[in-house]
Amino acid sequence: MAPVYPFSAIVGQEEMKRALMIAAVDPGIGGVMIFGDRGTGKSTAVRGLARLLPRIPMVEGCRFNCDPAEDAERCVPGCGAVAPRRVVQAPVPFVDLPLGATEDRVVGALDLEAALTQGARVFEPGLLARAHRGFLYIDEINLLDDHIVDLLLDVAQSGENIVEREGLSVRHPARFVLVGSGNPEEGELRPQLLDRFGLSVEVRTPTELAERIEVVRRRDAFDQDRAGFVAAQAAAERRIARRIDQARRRLAQTVVPDDVLTQAARLCLALGTDGLRGELTLLRAARALAALERRPEAQMADLKAVAPMALRHRLRRNPLDETGSTARIERAMAEVWGP
């Protein structure tokens, strides 16, 4: 596999990097949607993050990524694990869903080879099974076929994938962090899909000349000597990986105090965000950020840092309002919380 541009070498784009790290710390937040101009390194950042994910316990040989802690006795039938089960440590799965993927490969289908050579019905897990307990990444998500999107929404909702084919019925858990990226100029994302994402960030091309030059320089250095560039960045990469890993462990003990809860509720009220999901995401993101910052409890600073990414896609849209969602949130923050 060709070396991937290191996450730690990405110049600027702080909000995008922070959102991805938060999603890696708390998978329950519901994933990240990244909108942005062309050539801003959206997919570079996501693929870079894949290299920084910690190891988690897996059942050896299990093709459904079952959690040994959750189901102590056995996996999904036919998963491929041999009894007695052995638990191994493996990196959090990261699955790329390419455009043009067909339904059978997404949800899983009968193994063609087994059917042809042995006349046997063997279930071949799809991308959803591979992404269980990990990340499912879709670049250019706004170009994905509608019927694949519908499948994803259905599974994301239930956390379970059910396939029935050729008299075979398979049911396996599929809980994953959905990460999408796309360019709004290629078309808007369906509102139902946008709703699924916990966080949403907008990346722009840097306007600062010095920053632009640094981006070009680093990218060129990477293209010239990929292995060398990656090696030079190894220590910085390890630091981020460690930070994510430690924050994951610390998350359960990280507290959101009452006054922060109250302030989050006030902001959501002022913005008129629909339902409770926004508020919940806001709190979880603030907690994950606190854990990343090695703080025992979340502060207002955490809340301020995550409010735009947790709420900007939950505002009611007015096509004639030139004010972007981010500006509206910033205005509300200033009004509710003061400068």
Binding site: D96, P98, A101, T102, D104, A109, D111
Partner: peptide, 14 residues
């Protein structure tokens, strides 16, 4: 996507 990756990632028809 193919230009970016220098490879085709195929998940089609089995």
């Amino acid at each position: 996507a193919v230009l970016d990756a220098g490879a085709i990632h195929l998940e089609r028809h089995g």
